[in-house]
Amino acid sequence: MKKVFSRPESLRDAATHYCPGCGHGIAHRLICEVIDELGIREKAIAVCPVGCAVVAYDYWNFDCCEAAHGRALAVATGIKRTQPDKFVFTYQGDGDLAAIGTAETIHAANRGENLSVAFINNAVYGMTGGQMAPTTLLGQKTATTPRGRNPAGEGYPLKICELLATLPAVASLERVALDSPGGVIKTKRALKAAFINQLEGKGFSLVEILSPCPVCWNKPAGEAWRWVREEMAKTFPLGKFK
């Protein structure tokens, strides 16, 4: 009998610490599937963020490096510049990539570092308990916006793909959503394209993945997935930006 489905070699046989309905586990697995398919596990080096995915290295079966909050792309720059033959990617949340690490994100992109970025946008700080993220939607209630995010004083959701699209050194930008089986397949396709860009030396590629956080959003898993599709995607339109 032919085996048609199994755990990717890049994914360790471990139970994750993620909450039920969370998008991280799916994103982790998709990355592992792509790495296996491209045959690059033995030259892959991931830079993990500070945030919910801080221990991604416990789930990934390849070399991993920690970074301080927001500095993943700076650490990745150091790794890739000294080992240009390796495959280096960062995995970052919205607080990491779009708040405390905004400078690192914009400048790594602007230098055209030959890196791939998986950017998980779930509109909240998950690990610290659901505070407002730079990508929190207007009116969205969080631990630090109990009356809903008000643009007066709290600003607007930060659109990273749109911002980075102005930079000439960026190779590709795509926004996808973990909102449905179709969305999962599209996410994998986008990750694969971004990874191939690096292998072909095309430069900085970022995939923004809208991802559910049912616990911090205070919604059941099914409803959280619908919220990604019906609410988040309104503020963050899906598609290729570059």
């Binding site: 830079v47 970074a67 301080a68 700076a74 650490v75 720059t77 150091g78 790794i79 400048h107």
Partner: peptide, 14 residues
Amino acid sequence: ELAAISMVMGASAS
């Protein structure tokens, strides 16, 4: 400086 030292961390980890 934040980025510079983190880049050094990446190179050192390499």
